[in-house]
Amino acid sequence: MSGVSQSSTVLLNRLFTLKESSPLLLVTDTIAQSSYYLIKEFIHNVPKDTNIVYISFETIHKPKYANVFIEAYEMSSKALIEQINSTYESNVKNLIIIDSINFINNEILSQFLTSIIKPNLTVLATYHTSLPELETSVKYPNYPSSYKILSFIASSIFEIIPNSKEFDEEELELNLNKLNIVKGLNNSIFQINLINRRKSGRSINYKFEINTMNHNYNLILPDQSLDSGNSMDTQDLLKGLTTFNLTTSDKQKLAKDQVELPFLDAQSFNNGGAIVYEFEKDDDYDEEDPYEDPF
């Protein structure tokens, strides 16, 4: 197990430090836990000489870490692409942060991404999944949704989840649907579901708890007790409870499994449901009685 946890943390660190070559890193967030802290974690880890370009659709004030800040909200996509491409530096790593890619129209999304992606450049795009999405495009029916296009292109997807220990998931969703923002959301400690796609086509899935205060990343192992652990649990529970032996040995278990239970026998209707009457010596049979069974 330690091997899994080690390699997963290594992968996460490689992603944070931009060592893994990945043209598009997609971050999906909600109003319950935004991508803000995860982006900060990237900034904390990226090499010092990285050229950080911030494409803003919803941020008014330039973040301190950004080398270039582009106010994109009233720009045409063509002008935006030109401006982004003019900031590219081929000799260092480039990180393009898009504060919300929801603002880019679904129909030009793939074209937009392909025209800014270059070698030595990573696009780190946030996608808000809380926003309502169009069922179909007006111009092209059957065109995929923005989320589908992005998750298809992305080499890694960071799905951000609020720290679930503190919330009842159902109740939280109910509240968020009513736009009630409850206490304790948008924390500096949260969980991510990381999907990483290798070049071979294999995709791996890890869940982490990210603490942005002390930069600790803990792998959360999938919960196994649901699949197999249950019967073992009752055995463990009975052990040592009393001086009586309440557990069953393997031999007893085997014997127990082989017992044919009566209700199973009753399931086979070989006799077609007929009433089978066997005459016994004490039975009194009266030929005159019209209600007597005329077998």
Binding site: S130, L131, L179
Partner: peptide
């Protein structure tokens, strides 16, 4: 759409 985008900033 408007309110969620507001909440996101």
């Amino acid at each position: 759409d408007f309110i969620i985008r507001l909440l996101h900033r």
